[in-house]
Structures are given as C-alpha cells and as structure tokens.
Design a protein around this nucleic acid. Structure first.
Lengths: 147, 147
DNA sequence: GACCGTCGTAACGGTAATGGTTACGGCAGG
DNA sequence: CCTGCCGTAACCATTACCGTTACGACGGTC
C-alpha cells in the first residue's frame, strides 16, 4: 500500500500547536511547524486547512496571524484527524466492473464491501481511542539523545 | 489515501479458483480469472505469483497449465493474502527527518510508531478472522439480479 | 493610509505506486 | 514439433502525494 504521511504530519502539527500554546503563546505559524516537521510551510497550511474545515483548529489572518487549537488536545482523537485528512476508503474495489455473468464476478463486490466495512469500523474504533493529548504525552516521553 | 485493489483482486482470484476446483476442474488459467475480474491476465499472473511465493497457490506449466490452491480455502485468511500482496505499512512517517532539536520533532516518530504498531496489530487480527471460505460463502450469498 | 507578516490558494513539477498492455522466452504434454 | 499457458520484462497512462514558487488577501502596527 502506498502509505502516506498525512496523518503523521497532521498529528505532528497539532501536538506542536498544543505544546506551544501551553508555553503561553497565542498562535503558531505554519513556518514554525514546518521547521519542526522539516517540510514546506505550504504543506502545513494545506493540512491545517483541512483540519480547520473539520473544526479542529482556527486560523487568524493579518498581523500576528497563525494557528490555534479550536478544541483541547484531550478532546481530539486520531479518528478526527484521520477523517479530516484521509478521504478515501482503506481498500478499493475493482477498477472495472467484474463480469456480472460469472458467479464470483457478480457476488464479489457485495461480499468484499461488507468485509471492508467491518474492518474499517474496527480501525476507526482504534483511532478513536487515541487522543492528541496521549500523542503529546508519548512525544514528551521520548528519551533524550545521549550527548 | 490512494487505496488499491490488490487485496480485492487477490481474494477474487482465490475464490474463483476455489469454486472452479469444487466444480471438478484441476487448474484455472489466468485468462479465465482475468475474464471474471475484467482485467488483464498479466495482472492476475503477477498477483498469483505473489500468492505462490506466500505458499497459498501453486502453478503448473506446459500443456494443461494453470493455477490451483496450495491450501484449502478454509485455511487461508485475508491476513495471509494481505501480507502476500501489501508490502508496506498502513501509515508512513515523515519523508524527511523532523527537527531533532525540537521537542516535538524529536519525540514524534517514536510516539507515532508505537501507536501505528498497535493499530496495525488490530487490523491484522481482524483480517485473520476472515477466511477465504467465508469470502466465497458471502460471494455465493449475493442475490441474483432480477430479470 | 502605508507597511509588513502570515494566511489561502493556485500552479507546476518530481516521484512513486498501480495497473493495463505488449512482447517473448520457457516449459510440458499431445 | 506444436500448442497453450506461465513467467517476466518493458513501457505507458493515471493518480496521489509532496515540495516549491508565486501572488493576492487580510489585519494589525506605525
């Protein structure tokens, strides 16, 4: 599967904003987050834009502009982030319609659809168990590199 | 996520071979399966080649060649198929190393790795619960189209 | 009202995965 | 020898993702 890093980067950004705000700052800029994630500010703005549409963050424009959390880290789950940044289903059906004259070709799509729905439901349940608060805790629990 | 249909097509092929063998045939050809799945025989041969490497099917060459199951459908799970055809992890880390001088940049990868491992473990557990026998049952349970 | 920093977004290009297609050598039974 | 199918390489089109540049819009500050 061509895995992508959208969920990872989005979680990174949220954790960064959350920690920054706890240090007393009002807003975080896409450039600051991009520096931490070692990527381009536009990539961050694009992702945060999707998170804003999902109601997870807010943005301020003009002077002193930047991003802030719309909810506490403890009330945001990885499922919220996943739904905001990952549009499609986990597994896809055939690109073209299977032969409806074949028993297998006719029944395979309803069969797999049901199976995939159950699996995705389980995945969503797992993602919903993990809050961004927990992610930040795990981040801060990482051992320091030895000098 | 750019979902792919590899698992779907592989399950389709296995169900087709299994049903064909129950109808008394020895081997199935990639062309027969490709017709049912409405795709190209080479696509089927590529996928079945990966399933063969995983010990799920066998192929015969020469005259009267084709594919047969190496195991009963009831002993093959979607996890077996998933592992055979889906190499990478579900979610990826950053493409470039995050800033190790930043607290979040330093701790995010260990944190997400642990979380993703748990999630993938759950996914694998779910996939392991579903046998290809069950898939074929679901396929055959699909209602006929009304004339 | 001008200035400045940042957002918002369009546009383009590189990279990689997927899958459709053609081609061709190799194998084995008739 | 002939034939049918596997096995695999090669190529191309499509798509997603991400990095990058560019530029207009906005809203505080001076």
């Amino acid at each position: 599967m061509s895995a992508n890093s959208r969920l990872t980067i989005a979680a990174h950004a949220l954790a960064w904003i959350g920690l920054y705000q706890r240090q007393g700052h009002e807003v975080a800029t896409s450039e600051q987050i991009a520096t931490s994630a070692n990527t381009n500010p536009v990539v961050i703005r694009r992702l945060l834009g999707e998170l804003r549409r999902a109601g997870l963050v807010e943005s301020r424009r003009g002077a002193g502009a930047g991003w802030s959390l719309a909810r506490e880290l403890g009330s945001i789950t990885l499922l919220d982030v996943y739904e905001a940044v990952e549009p499609g289903p986990l597994f896809a059906m055939h690109r073209t319609t299977p032969d409806p004259g074949c028993v297998v070709g006719h029944g395979i799509q309803p069969a797999m659809r049901g199976i995939y729905q159950d699996i995705e439901e389980t995945l969503r349940h797992e993602l919903a168990r993990i809050t961004l608060e927990k992610v930040l805790e795990d981040v801060l629990a990482a051992p320091r590199l030895p000098l």
